[in-house]
Design a protein around this nucleic acid. Sequence first.
DNA 1: AAAAAAG
Length: 485
Amino acid sequence: MERPAEDLSTMEVPVAPVVRDNQPAEGQERPGRKRKRRDPRPPAAVEVESAWTIDQFAVEPIAGQTRFHDFDIPPEVMHGIADLDFRYCTPIQEKSLPEVLAGHDLIGKANTGTGKSAVFLVAILARLMRDDREGKRPRALVIAPTRELVLQIARDGVALAKYTGLRVTAVFGGTDYQAQMNDLTRGTTDIVVATPGRLLDFLGKGILSLDGCGIMVIDEADRMLDMGFIPDVRRIIGRLPKKEERQTLLFSATLSEDVKHLASQWCVHPRTVEAEVEQVVVATVKQIVYLVTADEKYTVLYNLIARHRDERIIVFTNMKNEAKRLSDRLQRNGVECLLLSGEVPQVKRTSRLESFRTGRTNVLVATDVAGRGIHIEGITYAVNYTLPYEPEDYVHRIGRTGRAGAVGTAVSFACEEGAFYLPAIEEYIGRKLECVMPDEWLLQPPPKGAPAPRQERGEQAPRRQSSGRRKRRPGQRGGSSGNSA
DNA sequence: AAAAAAG
């Protein structure tokens, strides 16, 4: 899990170059071509010779808790699960795993942090372990709306797949065109995790064929809708086996009519599973709204950061330039921080996120590119510098804190215009938010701004303190049920 | 309305 991101596209063990299967270059149906009828249900039981047995990974039963061990998961996959210290299932895992392992299509209503990626990754791995490997084509596809999400899923996939011999390739824009292409053309990849753009690029060039994918996952389907990805997703799905011949898992934070409509087009008799409704915002996140003027916002943020300088804080804005301006201003005031938005080159996006993840830099200023899915342990504060337009985004953003049972605080600034969005948010989360005036100490004027230092210099923002002082990675992964691969 | 995604 803690592997540097850069490893991913070069992670595959080099294999003697193989000629790609004689697929039609464009991957389209060939009229006379025979396709093996694919039973969406994997064989019920298999006798695999394995170095491991399920019992090795047994954990103590707890009343009312389902264990991963309770499912029919191949030992190699169980080993990966055990390595990640996943023992007891989250609600979505408990309800989905029986369905997906039985080969059913699934519509999962789940936010990030509920453990849904473990659901589909385990489903994929279990299935691929049981199916015979045929050809050199990838046999599973996961698509997600942001690059970071793809990277993270791929990472979790690599970790879970550690003992399976199955290989994962992350395919997304902004980096490593050649490296990704090599992985795909070598035919040594079993599972492709991708954003739509780059994937379509490869598909269009005939670099990759998806007709061996007997299982596909569409993650964050509602976000895919928002971002206008659906035509792309449609085109991608058109390259997979027909829905009757594949297993399709679709996850979405909301089950709007639009999402249901998509699901009806792409799935066959899907089972629907929802994470607990109450779980919109986890109980361990304390939510506060500061009533401030537009002028006070910065001051309050500055003081909040200054007071908690050894804690990991993520600050959200609505717009890219707002994030840029804010991070510049913080740096002028000597606050070491990282900027993350869609206009930041991908290489830097990755390295900055890594820098934040490892705790080298404690403050991240971001747009909603980082709102979903990113799981980084030990974020104690999530700040809405501006309240998001969509209530869902509020939930996603503050879900960056209070993860895995840890305690976190969500701070939102409601100035004149921002307050406009509050009622919708309160309705969405089903509770009133505590609105307070900032305390005295939060209104102390920040130091006079020095001339803006450049952020880039090997990604080292100006230092405010010696790096030796802090090192800890707060929040060990909670061992019991709060996993979220 | 903004953000995200292909180069």
